[in-house]
Design a protein around this nucleic acid. Sequence first.
DNA 1: CATTCGCTATGGGGAAATCG
DNA 2: CGATTTCCCCATAGCGAATG
Length: 207
Amino acid sequence: MLELAVLGLLKEQPLHGYALRKLLTQRLGAFWRVSFGSLYPTLRKLERAGAVERVRDEGGGRRRRQVYRITAQGEQQFLSLLEAGDGGGWEEEKFPLRLAFFRYLRPETRIRLLERRRAELVQRLGDSRTSLERAHAEGTDGYVVALIRHGVERTEADVAWLDDLIAAERALASGGEANPHGHTSDRGADEPSAVPQGLGDDQLRGR
DNA sequence: CATTCGCTATGGGGAAATCG
DNA sequence: CGATTTCCCCATAGCGAATG
């Protein structure tokens, strides 16, 4: 999943390892910390996969710097990683990362991903509520019950948050340019060139 | 049948090594 | 000397075997 973050930043501009890490920390540091020890292996992996290419930086730097640039193939990989359902259990950590690059997706795709995420949470909410009831019924330790209840409440809040995002996204989709495709034809509709505007600050802030 | 154990692959961090 | 890269060790997840 580091790959997604790296590709996302390189998509904006070619960077060398050191700068990449700085930017990574700056942009995603809130929920994601990256060290060189993981960054460089990732870059090498991406390079081997042809998603990224190395160019010499001829700037007047002190030392030859390896500048990494995303390739067309990398752009594709980025989008598919961004959209990928790959369902894995660690979706949990990947979602915030995805959201950080949401602006590269089309509104339909964003809505689809938000709704998928919402569905996951609703599913979990059901499970949590069930275990909360069971815990009550069985007279489970009060602290444990509190913990479970906290989980339920947090998930409820997350669902509400997603509802807001989805609503705002819908408003944007219908308000903005007319959507050429009435419905999403699920596969690979996103082109690198198609970089629609995301939600504005006023829509995302404070609510 | 359910649970625990043990092994392996993977990924990440810290720090040493390198180079202009 | 300081910026950049690479190396090495450790933690964790996943998976199959073993055990009660």
